[in-house]
Design a binder for these strands. Structure first.
Lengths: 139, 139
DNA sequence: TATTGTTATACTCTATAACTATA
DNA sequence: TATAGTTATAGAGTATAACAATA
């Protein structure tokens, strides 16, 4: 079961590599695109990554010109993260590739099977998260 | 989907911790119990771990007295790994705990849902593995 | 006093090369 | 010459502590 996932994960990583994206920067980019003006602390929490480790992730995306660290209007400590136009384009392309990858992956499954599979994953995750900490993922 | 798995994986790790087992040493112990006189190269391949990195894993289990490195009868270079009586007991207890953990985890799912889920995981893994390399896992 | 982003650091995991003793 | 186990080492990923600027 664990192994199944490593195989899948490595495969997705290979799919994203040509885009200059790692799994974590890919997810980060999506979150920033979908939630403009996100702060780094919020993003770190959504990715379940330490704030300190998020720095290099944001550096990476900023260095490629796909996001910018704007000054937050109300709090001068914090950054309001935004995807650039290029970032939006990049995100769209990468998401498309990831979807195609997923399609290829789930091709071995029937349609009903596939829906059950996805639903089951989400159910398990939600149950576990709620059991562990009272906090619920907002994003 | 990736996140679902991290949550589950971290949870299983916490279940095994009181036994002094990590995910990888747990799997290694099971394989040794089920396949006596396995060589380290065979075990490394089954775990998809480099031979060099397997050393510390075997050291760990041997240091706890749960397995032994016997001299292989036919090849003086290689080790025949065997679980001790204590190792067998430990394995049994840990497997039981892991099963209970899995039960708790899948409790949120219906029975049919559960079976579909497990089958789907295996189908996906098999499809991917066969696509990538001609080799099939023997163990 | 607490929080945001940041740096430095340590610890684990993983990957590669080289060594030894055998084959 | 090739293989089994081992060592050393370098690279990622991740976790913790401390700091400056700001709240």
């Amino acid at each position: 079961m664990k192994r199944s996932f490593n195989v899948v994960q490595a495969d997705l990583a290979r799919t994203l590599e040509p885009f200059g994206l790692r799994m974590i920067t890919f997810t980060a980019l999506i979150l920033i695109v979908d939630n403009p003006d996100l702060s780094q602390t919020q993003l770190a929490s959504a990715l379940t990554v330490e704030r300190s480790n998020l720095v290099t992730i944001v550096d990476d995306l900023e260095g490629k010109g796909w996001i910018v660290r704007n000054p937050a209007p109300n709090d001068r400590r914090s950054h309001a993260l935004r995807a650039t136009r290029e970032g939006h384009r990049m995100c769209e392309r990468a998401v498309k590739a990831a979807r195609e990858h997923e399609e290829r992956l789930l091709a071995a499954l029937g349609k009903a099977e596939r829906e059950t599979f996805i639903a089951a994953l989400q159910t398990i995750e939600r149950a576990k998260r709620e059991e562990q900490d009272g906090t619920d993922g907002k994003l």
